[in-house]
């Protein structure tokens, strides 16, 4: 389990770095998707290796997939609208911390 959790931690860290370092909306969305993958692998790992009385990790992963993909879809739509308004990618300079 240690290797799986280390892998997901690395994946999550790459995602966080991407969100903070990238300045384009699509780049941030892709980084968030990487972070979501880390969470889903985490949940499945806990269900696989620990003997839980109620293995809810799989169900939870499904919920995350459905809800977060819907959210990401709206984010892509909003980014597309913005891009079609400004007509140029160079206008994108997003910084979520400022």
């Amino acid at each position: 389990m240690f290797y799986y959790l280390s892998f997901t931690a690395a994946l999550f860290a790459i995602g966080v770095f991407g969100v903070l370092a990238r300045r384009s909306a699509m780049g941030i969305i892709i980084s968030i998707t990487i972070m979501l993958s880390a969470i889903i692998i985490n949940l499945i790992t806990f269900d696989r290796f620990l003997e839980h009385s109620e293995p809810l990790g799989h169900v939870w992963a499904l919920f995350i997939l459905i809800i977060c993909s819907f959210e990401l879809l709206i984010a892509v739509a909003a980014a597309y609208l913005w891009r079609s308004d400004t007509k140029a990618n160079s206008h994108e300079n997003l910084n979520l911390l400022n």
Partner: peptide, 22 residues
């Protein structure tokens, strides 16, 4: 776009913490 992305990013951070609690 910023509001939407920040909302998803914060949700993902919370979910990562939740996964360890679980």
């Amino acid at each position: 776009v910023k509001v939407m992305l920040t909302s998803i990013f914060s949700t993902v951070l919370i979910l990562y913490g939740f996964s360890f609690l679980y």
